[in-house]
């Protein structure tokens, strides 16, 4: 009976563990889903010297851990992980597989889905269980303000990727227990056809906005590159960072690092200023955890204004200039 229990799998992507908590966020989401279909949450960890991650995933809510600890797996290998995951999934038949949409996950998940002949939806912003017990994969739909509910009706497992920051991890709890299964490396694991010749960690970005308390975001309503650049002045005064929408990044007013939304960063500031942004769903998908939103837009009907706590109907650059001037005055005196 026991091995009949349904299982929700979360792929353990630990490479940037301290900056990127997506695996923990997915374990927490999987715990919610598991209740609805009476399943267990199972985290998978492949690598070498991986005890730390086994402990972390346990403390953050996994019921079971499938671990393969072997020197052959000491660096990430898409091909080897694929063989291992495919084999395990065929053997154990998980109901759902969730994978973080890191660069690695975005290359790994589609290939795994193809091998398992199943569907995959990318960048989900919500996951639910339908009354029939299906995984409902909610993702921004093309254009405007629409969300799409996607299901994989006839194939298993049901698979989804989720951007870091979309869901919340549960607090670390050392008293949690998980059933840890340590598995041997698959026999005859093929040599990867792609050879990793060299790799190095890039220097940490200094001004990552993911953890900033105050973020000043600008959109196309800033009008031009010069006006946009002044957002940095406000951010500096407030001790925060600058975010941008996609058209602004494409236009070269801001770096790709500043992109906020579905295709960029998910942010969680205490205060968010949003200048000249319409509030398309692909952008607001990244604002899930902003506490207090101040939007400035000429158009009072803009979605961003409706989502805001404070909505200022005015010219974005005028408000920006006044705010900078006024704050400088008030802080100094």
């Amino acid at each position: 009976m026991e091995n009949k229990k349904k299982s929700i799998w979360v792929f353990g992507d630990y490479r940037n563990y301290y900056q990127n908590r997506v695996t923990l966020q997915l374990i927490s989401k999987a715990m919610d889903l598991a209740k609805a279909i009476n399943a267990e949450v199972c985290a998978l960890v492949f690598g070498h010297e991986i005890n730390e991650w086994i402990m972390e995933y346990t403390a953050h809510g996994a019921d079971r851990i499938l671990a393969i600890d072997d020197p052959a797996l000491k660096s990430y290998s898409t091909e080897q992980y694929l063989v291992i995951m495919e084999n395990l999934a065929r053997e154990r038949d998980p109901e759902i597989i969730l994978i973080g949409a890191t660069d690695f996950g975005r290359e790994f998940a589609p290939r795994l889905a193809k091998r398992l002949k199943t569907g995959l939806s990318a960048d989900c912003v919500g996951l639910e269980i339908s009354p029939e017990g299906l995984l409902v994969q909610i993702a921004p739909s093309f254009g405007g303000n629409m969300l799409a509910e996607i299901v994989t009706e006839y194939h298993r497992p049901q698979m989804a990727t989720v951007r870091p920051g979309t869901f919340k991890e549960i607090p670390h709890d050392n008293s949690r227990k998980a059933q840890v299964e340590r598995l041997p490396l698959i026999k005859d694991l093929p040599e990867p056809r792609v050879r990793l010749i060299e790799y190095e960690r890039c220097a940490e970005k200094e001004h990552s906005i993911e953890n900033a308390q105050v973020i000043v975001c600008g959109g196309r309503g800033m009008g031009n590159k010069n006006n946009f650049a002044k957002l940095h002045e406000l951010a500096r005064i407030l001790g925060g960072g600058v975010g941008a929408t996609r058209p602004v990044v494409y236009a070269g007013w801001a770096d790709h690092d500043a992109l906020v939304g579905q295709a960029g960063k998910h942010i969680k500031p205490k205060i968010l200023f949003s200048f000249g942004i319409s509030g398309a769903i692909q952008h607001t998908a990244g604002l899930g955890e902003a506490d207090f939103i101040v939007a400035i837009n000429k158009n009072p009907q803009a979605t961003m204004m409706k989502m805001a706590d404070v909505a200022m109907v005015a010219d974005a650059s005028d408000v920006l200039n006044s705010l900078i001037k006024e704050l400088k005055k008030r802080i100094r005196e």
């Binding site: 994969q137 739909s141 799409a148 994989t152």
Partner: peptide, 12 residues
């Protein structure tokens, strides 16, 4: 393999 079951307007 995937099917869009419903598209809906987000409440804002």
């Amino acid at each position: 393999r995937t099917k869009v079951r419903r598209v809906f307007l987000r409440k804002t």
